[in-house]
Computed example of a mutant assay.
Amino acid sequence: MTRRTHTHPDLTRPESGAPFFSTWRVGTPERQAQAVEAVARTWDGRPWPTNDLLGYHLYTGRDGTTLLHHSQWRSEQAYEAFVKTHRQERNDEIDTAVPGIERVGLDRYRRYRSRERAAGDTRIPGLIVIVRIDFEPDAAGKRADWVDTVLTALSSPEADRGLISAHFHLSTDGGHVLNYAEWESDDSYDEAVAAPVGPEWVRVRTYPGLKGFSAVRYTHTVGLVP
């Protein structure tokens, strides 16, 4: 069966060979809450679809209009099998409860590297920031080196203490990097954004082939696990 949890996912699970992220636009905070409950209720009422799905987590956008979905699959093939047999009936039930959801898109990734939380760090993230980093079409092969550059900057003694962890994923289409960052709080993230930029971060921001960044704030709302 399906169980709800408020425990944040472990982004470093080695079994997660196919981490997916997708976004829905729902319009208002009230519809956000309704959509989260509709998803959870739909999954509650059915058996867990497959052992190849490790977990499915929902996040509410701090803008009050969006939902982020993160699912951890053992393989893309397992997801495709789920689509053929289970997904549509679940979407239909959710859409009946909350009509007019705009499904913006689903992106497929492979986790490349992480700045993992320190040993003994038991902080619960108060903020999740999803950073998308786009690259020029001919720079797909540079994405891993760019992540290495970021992790070098994060290893400095001056690195942000409010950052609990950061998990860098390479999109399978070659176009971008997704950073799933766990922060202690909004204040700690705001302080990091406002802090002076050192030479390590200048290299990060001016890396050849880098096209642009976007960052969106989320709250982990509920997890669905077997």
Rank of each mutant, 00 (worst) to 15 (best):
Arg108Cys: 03
Ser22Cys: 13
Arg46Met: 07
Ala140Met: 04
Val98Asn: 02
Gly162Asn: 08
Pro196His: 07
Arg62Cys: 13
Gly174Phe: 07
Asn51Cys: 02
His86Val: 12
Ala81Asn: 11
Arg74His: 11
Ala97Cys: 11
Gly105Met: 10
Gly209Asn: 03
Gly141His: 14
Val225Arg: 14
Glu93Tyr: 01
Pro125Ala: 15
Tyr56Phe: 15
Gly223Asp: 02
His86Cys: 06
Pro29Ile: 09
Ser75Ile: 00
Glu116His: 12
Val104Ile: 15
Asp186Pro: 03
Leu224Cys: 04
Thr96Pro: 06
Leu163Lys: 10
Asp187Val: 14
Ile101Trp: 07
Trp146Val: 06
Arg203Glu: 12
Gly27Tyr: 05
Val26Ala: 12
His176Met: 08
Asp173Asn: 13
Trp146Asp: 06
Thr66Ile: 00
Ser114Gln: 01
Asp121Arg: 14
Thr96Phe: 03
Glu158Trp: 01
Asn91Ser: 14
Ala215Phe: 08
Gly175Trp: 04
Trp24Tyr: 06
Lys84Arg: 10
Ser22Trp: 15
Gly45Lys: 06
Leu54Val: 07
Thr60Met: 05
Ser165Arg: 06
Trp73Thr: 00
Ala33Pro: 01
Gly209Tyr: 12
Ser214Lys: 08
Ile164Cys: 12
Thr96Gly: 12
Ala140Asn: 04
Phe82Met: 11
Gly105His: 06
Asn51Gly: 15
Thr23Phe: 15
Arg31Ser: 12
Tyr56Ser: 07
Gly198Met: 02
Tyr56Lys: 00
Thr85Val: 08
Arg90Trp: 11
Arg4Thr: 07
Tyr189Ile: 01
Glu184Trp: 05
Arg117Asn: 04
Ala97Arg: 15
Leu154Lys: 04
Leu170Asp: 00
Leu106Gly: 08
Ser75Phe: 01
Arg117Trp: 02
Gly126Ala: 05
Lys142Ile: 01
Val83Asn: 13
Gly64Glu: 05
Thr60Gln: 13
Arg203Pro: 01
Val150Thr: 09
Ile124Met: 09
Ala140Ile: 05
Arg110Ile: 13
Ala195Arg: 14
Val225Tyr: 07
Arg25Ile: 06
Pro19Val: 02
Arg110Tyr: 13
Thr172Phe: 01
Thr50Asn: 08
Thr122Cys: 06
Gln34Gly: 01
Pro99Arg: 11
Trp73Phe: 02
Pro19Met: 08
Gln34Pro: 03
His8Cys: 05
Arg3Trp: 02
Arg143Met: 10
Ser22Ile: 04
Tyr56Asn: 03
Phe135Asn: 03
Glu158Val: 03
Pro199Trp: 02
Phe135Ala: 02
